[in-house]
Design a protein around this nucleic acid. Structure first.
Ligand SMILES: NC(=O)c1ccc[n+]([C@@H]2O[C@H](COP(=O)([O-])OP(=O)(O)OC[C@H]3O[C@@H](n4cnc5c(N)ncnc54)[C@H](O)[C@@H]3O)[C@@H](O)[C@H]2O)c1
Ligand SMILES: NC(=O)c1ccc[n+]([C@@H]2O[C@H](COP(=O)([O-])OP(=O)(O)OC[C@H]3O[C@@H](n4cnc5c(N)ncnc54)[C@H](O)[C@@H]3O)[C@@H](O)[C@H]2O)c1
Lengths: 253, 253
DNA sequence: AGGCGCTTGTGAAGTCGTGCACAAATCGCG
DNA sequence: CGCGATTTGTGCACGACTTCACAAGCGCCT
């Protein structure tokens, strides 16, 4: 991560809660809790126990309680957590109280799908601009936004105060795009291209690689098939019904 | 593809190769090493040191060596690793010696992009069938495959011996689709829908959620912006140049 | 008021993963 | 043939994360 804050974190005075320096693993689970909470709220639930919420989010309840305890205690013993309050708390922690603008670079096969994705907007983000290097694509209207040339990136990024960039170009261009994003002031990048990006300190990169996910699944398939010879294993054909909401098999993370 | 395994360590007996029981974290990194190795091989490299490969894969060299040591030792001290040999070894470990068939369910916005994705084929997988519940979509030809109705899933899955399913339907349908996949004998699922799936023991599920990734980035943005007030921080606007190939900022995972 | 059942928050122990640091192994060269 | 340069493989200590187990807190019912 960037670097550690010296001394007592949270010099924050006034009404704003302190930033508790959450464990990375906890941060990665908060969005999942948030989604589950929104579902519960829609279903009309006012409060929820750690057990319920943990079930809905697919984690262990002790882990959930510990995670939530990191952001300050908001549960009531004997009762559970206030759903609305917890949503606010998590959204604040994740920095979702302001709708963040996102720049999407590379409006090809995948880029089109992302540009049209409603889940962006409903979860706190706003696609602020689309970019591509292909002149043939520039000008195209997608979901109310027209594609701009990559050379406009810096101007637009500043004008729209964009801090997050999504790279959906071929791997060969990804580093160049990342450099351009960084130069334009972007400090967080979500990379769909299968390659490693080099960025300066202070810039966060997350990578999503479909093939990697499949290969991990393939490994477990491989392992499972070596076990079919064993007795008493899930060997039986097409399984019957699905078990109750369970920790499932959550491979890796 | 199906290479005989290089002899060596891994004293397996009988027909079934020994399963080294790799740490999950190692398994998750192997695909990355594999990608880097393919790049190196294309560039004409015959051998590679742990330092180089680690750089190309974005990890610490000690970690890389430890990871590789888990699959039996294939390096030569003073020299490095044989690229081709290592590729074979990792592909074998990941179970990529056989091209695995994948069923894609939900040919909507995202599904179309996935169906047309070349990276599938080039990394050891074959989209064997496309399914959708919408009669209007059934029959549509995408990338040489025509979309079939979800009710054909069981038959096709068996006929094509499909063990991996990809869910690209709305969240509301995802559990139903997962049940159908499991009933059809699928034992690994990659889920793009933002919801928790319940599956029987023995079935692996991995989830990819774009919004979660963005929210994690948002958290770090939030944290960073709270730091701009501090002195000596990466506060300065648009950064300059990109540093050398470095561990970058690899958030989480 | 008091007791009871439920649920949270957390200490402590256990597990897993990481990275350092270095001995052992190998190659190339004089 | 031996030596030094190089790089692997790994023991070890540390840190992060998970899970258990339970005391403490809270609301409700009598
Ligand atoms: N299609 C998928 O389902 C899928 C899935 C996972 C990962 N990916 C990855 O996502 C990336 C994009 O995939 P795709 O199928 O959309 O490819 P694509 O070729 O359809 O689209 C790439 C787009 O990027 C644009 N582009 C190229 N260089 C650029 C640059 N320097 N600046 C701006 N734009 C540039 C191209 O003009 C094109 O429009 C690839 O790296 C691919 O490996 C794709
Ligand atoms: N579009 C994106 O970029 C994107 C990104 C991340 C995640 N997602 C998620 O991926 C999923 C699909 O997104 P989308 O934008 O492609 O949605 P979409 O509505 O465009 O496509 C969904 C498709 O699934 C089909 N479907 C619905 N129920 C089905 C069933 N029971 N069996 C088989 N097919 C069924 C529909 O007919 C439709 O063709 C959603 O869960 C979404 O949240 C999408």
């Amino acid at each position: 991560m960037s670097q550690h804050r010296p001394g007592g974190p949270n010099g924050r005075a006034g009404g704003v809660p302190a930033l508790p320096d959450l464990p990375e693993a906890t941060v990665a689970r908060l969005p999942e809790y948030l989604r589950a909470l929104h579902n519960l709220a829609e279903a009309g639930n006012d409060t929820v126990s750690s057990e319920e919420l943990a079930g809905a989010a697919g984690v262990n309840s002790a882990k959930l309680r510990k995670d939530l305890s990191h952001l300050g205690s908001y549960g009531t013993r004997g009762v559970g957590y206030d759903v609305a309050l917890l949503i606010d708390q998590i959204e604040f922690t994740l920095g979702l109280t302001q709708r963040r603008g996102v720049a999407l670079v590379g409006v090809g096969n995948l880029g089109h799908a992302l540009a049209g994705y409603a889940g962006f907007a409903s979860r706190g983000f706003r696609i602020a601009a689309l970019f591509d290097a292909d002149p043939a694509r520039v000008g195209e209207l997608i979901n109310g936004l027209h594609v701009r040339h990559i050379s406009d990136l810096a101007d637009v990024a500043v004008a729209e105060s964009i801090a997050i960039g999504v790279i959906a170009t071929p791997a060969a261009s990804a580093q160049d795009v990342a450099d351009a994003l960084v130069a334009a002031g972007v400090t967080s990048i979500l990379n769909f291209a299968p390659c490693v990006l080099s960025v300066p300190d202070g810039v966060d990169v997350r990578k999503v690689d479909l093939a990697v996910e499949l290969q991990i699944l393939s490994f477990h398939e491989h392992r499972k098939s070596s076990l079919t010879a064993l007795p008493g294993g899930l060997g039986g054909g097409p399984a019957g019904l699905v078990s109750a909401a369970e920790p499932e098999e959550a491979v890796g993370t």
